[in-house]
Design a protein around this nucleic acid. Sequence first.
DNA 1: CATGAATGAGCCTTCATTCAT
DNA 2: CATGAATGAAGGCTCATTCAT
Lengths: 209, 209, 209, 209
Amino acid sequence: MRTPKVPLEKFELRRAELGEATLQTLAALGYARTSLREIAQNSAFSHGVLHYYFQDKTDLILCSVRQYKARCVTRYDAIVTEAQDAAALQQAFLATLGDTLRDEAMLHRLWYDLRAQAMFEAAFRADVAKIDKSLEKMVWNVVARLAALAGTQGPLPSPALAYAALDGVFQQALLRHLAGDRKAIATMQQETAALLRLLLPALAAAPAG
Amino acid sequence: MRTPKVPLEKFELRRAELGEATLQTLAALGYARTSLREIAQNSAFSHGVLHYYFQDKTDLILCSVRQYKARCVTRYDAIVTEAQDAAALQQAFLATLGDTLRDEAMLHRLWYDLRAQAMFEAAFRADVAKIDKSLEKMVWNVVARLAALAGTQGPLPSPALAYAALDGVFQQALLRHLAGDRKAIATMQQETAALLRLLLPALAAAPAG
Amino acid sequence: MRTPKVPLEKFELRRAELGEATLQTLAALGYARTSLREIAQNSAFSHGVLHYYFQDKTDLILCSVRQYKARCVTRYDAIVTEAQDAAALQQAFLATLGDTLRDEAMLHRLWYDLRAQAMFEAAFRADVAKIDKSLEKMVWNVVARLAALAGTQGPLPSPALAYAALDGVFQQALLRHLAGDRKAIATMQQETAALLRLLLPALAAAPAG
Amino acid sequence: MRTPKVPLEKFELRRAELGEATLQTLAALGYARTSLREIAQNSAFSHGVLHYYFQDKTDLILCSVRQYKARCVTRYDAIVTEAQDAAALQQAFLATLGDTLRDEAMLHRLWYDLRAQAMFEAAFRADVAKIDKSLEKMVWNVVARLAALAGTQGPLPSPALAYAALDGVFQQALLRHLAGDRKAIATMQQETAALLRLLLPALAAAPAG
DNA sequence: CATGAATGAGCCTTCATTCAT
DNA sequence: CATGAATGAAGGCTCATTCAT
């Protein structure tokens, strides 16, 4: 009871804090342009501290990437739980996707950047794959619930296919949004709606309001 | 503004040659890890000459990216022209997709890398967007022809949606392929087939062999 | 000037303990590659405590060097006391030299390292000189006793010369031993015997068994 | 004939130039305190150049060490050739040893430093061993010639023993000289003379003038 | 034209040292 | 007393870029 925090817990807290600064810097500059000095300047600490809490740059980036995951993965849980019918769920989903695109564009471009880096650097692969799997699960939560609410009878698409296709649409939208396209969000929502109708034909019968 | 005293044709030839070396190096190492020295070493020229033919590193990379486009964009023209029926076209498409994934994985991971860089560096955006548009057109060539051969009656998906969804599937497959998944290609082909059936329901009636 | 509130005895005990850890680390890595962190990790203490017990790195190293001296300087006392005749003393001396080379090679290379450092850093000079003097005395103990037992009549070499020459032979042997030469110890013993015969011609008359 | 120097030759020339700057810096600061930036500052170049001409720090140091050897190894050739009798040769030898100690103390302490480093760093061992062998040969040139001129009848000491013992004496003298002992050189000459008389008893009969 | 020598900023990392707790 | 968190200088090294030849 002398020490308010277990040392190890405090250590992890600081790691998380620095991981967050890393995330912000990576999101702002991209992997290729992010240096440890820049990260430290976006934190309350000197750059020497980074090597006190992390083995090396890779360790730091992986830690911050895991933080990204925790932040993303529960984003759609609430709307899945709360939605009363298919139309409402779809609408909430599209709205939240739009919010994400608008508010977290920086963070999401980082994700696509890191996923691309994982194609080159084996060190990133395991973590990136785990996050991708989590995102797939998250998307599937929505799609499966949507299917249930819409009373889908026929076969469902595989979770992998649903995620890949929806992610493809999101990625294109992000690209256009970052290029300054004002209609990127609205277009993304329309295309996502169209894609959902293809994935779950039952939705087409009861279109979203 | 360089005013080359070389005949302009030769100048462009050299640029192309160096662009090709750049492409190979980028594909092997990724944007973040590619240096001008490395590029020069993968070419027949010295390291200093790069700044004679290119303003700076960005100029060089953009040039090499444009070369990437030329290489990709006609890849599916032949099968569109030659296919006699929907089943044959789909089969040829899936086979060629598989070949691409197997034989040009390096080049394609570079594409995803550069597309991610374009989200950070405005200088890359115009070129990346143009290439993305070309790819979309290329994909649409196939999809539209497939629809025609299958005798699709109802509305077609938008070219943007078709491209985004198919690209999403390809990207996931590339990720798994590079991670060592032996079944990545086969899985990609199955998911692409499933996706095509969703995009063009008429295909489902006359499934590919 | 630190005024320790610990009993002075305990303070000195700690210094000795940390000096020992320093000695081990220096012997393992050499002066140029030894860091305070590494030293602390080879001790039972934390890295911060070093600056409580020592003014700075130099102070710590000097302390550990003095410990080295204490360890070495009595090494040949026993054989001088116990030997009954010249042949036995010489044999015991050579045997012990061999043991030293085999068992304490790490510590001895440290000595040569630190002696070289003293040529650059004035701070080391006084301590190194004192140790060198002690070693000279130690060697002379043996040589002088050997001379007495052999019944040497003529003039003796100076202690400084005897030490310098014997040390030169030892140093060469250590170098070869550390380079992996299996015969380094045996060669050293032969050369030392030859050198002793030159230093004390009386030995040649009654050669060691 | 266009280029006044063969490129490769020019490259080696620059390497030698930088090796020389390295040698000066090492001699001034010692291995543990020498940085590449410091070396560059003792040269006409920026520190980036060092990595253009040398693979890494070890490569640079090894190159400079090899230069040390070339400088040392012929130092006594002239006096061996020119000396007419044993007394003259011994006197010339002692005089040159004294000059060396006075004029090149810095360089010689570097040698002892690097020889100590070789006990820790395997990368240095081969070069250090080769130089040590050259020095032994150089010393033996003198000793053997001295023996011949003195008309030595009995067995000679091994070259290794002669070198080790003489080097031990020189090293002690260097230590004292660097510590400010004004009599270090004279003492060294006396002890060397004494050692030579022990090594070559024939010298004692015809003492040096 | 083309080379490769040279620069200097910047990168990741290590380190001795300080200091709040 | 002792810890370990934090600092900032310095280390080896890479890099895009410039420029004399």
